[in-house]
């Protein structure tokens, strides 16, 4: 699915969440879930992990919102704020994955199949790009994904990743440069 409509205005959502958290929560999930899922998938490279992160993100978001004042929720930039939770979870998951890299054989097989399905859904170049993305260091990958897959503003990305705007911009730039190098020559117009 490709959405051409970018950066939807989520401020009415913040207003609704402020006055009626439960009433507006479904709309909030529906408005943000594709982004959270896609972003997590591109940061983690695994659908199952992305689903886990998504689930945990909304669970934490719901609990957090339940404790916020109406005023605080009203002023929330909902899209970027949700990413402060999700980006953290993605980073933690990669860390714990690095700590225990041993996976039972059966699980590996399942994983391989999943990845194949994912690959098939993407064009040839999508495959190359997806792999090249996974080769980037996490800060660059996260910054590129949030900026160019999800179209977040640099301010939102800086908040989500808890890094200065300048650093984020540099990470996006470096990330893109490395991705271009990974692209086969003939595909660059």
């Amino acid at each position: 699915m490709t959405t051409t409509m970018t950066r939807p205005d989520l401020s009415p959502l913040a207003r609704d969440l402020a006055t009626d958290l439960d009433g507006a929560f479904t709309a909030y999930v529906l408005a943000t879930a594709d982004g959270i899922f896609s972003g997590s998938l591109r940061m983690l490279g695994d659908r199952r992990d992305a689903e886990d992160v998504m689930q945990e993100t909304y669970s934490r978001a719901y609990k957090a919102l339940g404790g916020y004042s109406e005023e605080r929720i009203r002023n929330l930039k909902v899209g970027g704020w949700t990413w402060t939770i999700a980006a953290n979870l993605c980073r933690n998951r990669l860390r714990s994955r690095a700590r225990k890299p041993t996976v039972p054989l059966e699980a590996l097989e399942v994983k391989a199949t999943n990845t194949d399905t994912e690959d098939a859904a993407l064009s040839g170049i999508g495959k190359v790009l997806r792999r090249a993305l996974m080769d980037l260091p996490f800060p660059q990958r996260a910054a590129v994904v949030l900026r160019h897959v999800l179209d977040l503003t640099y301010d939102d990305i800086a908040a989500a990743l808890d890094r200065p705007v300048g650093t984020v911009k540099a990470d996006v730039h470096r990330g893109l440069t490395r991705l271009r190098r990974a692209y086969p020559e003939e595909t660059i117009r």
Binding site: M1, T2, T3, L21, D22, G23, F25, T26, V29, L30, A33, D34, G35, I36, F37, S38, L41, R42, E51, M54, Q55, T57, Y58, S59, Y62, A121, L122, S123, I125, G126, L129, R130, L133, V144, V145, H148, V149, L150, D151, L176, L179, R180, Y183, T187, I188, R189
Partner: peptide
């Protein structure tokens, strides 16, 4: 507007319906 930027945008994908349901189910409405 280069190919890379367009291709990155194409990496946006739909969240599985059952996963969206699970996310909604963390709230008190479902």
């Amino acid at each position: 507007t280069d190919r890379l930027i367009t291709d990155l945008r194409e990496l946006m994908t739909a969240a599985p319906k059952v996963a969206v349901n699970a996310a909604i189910a963390v709230s008190a409405v479902a």
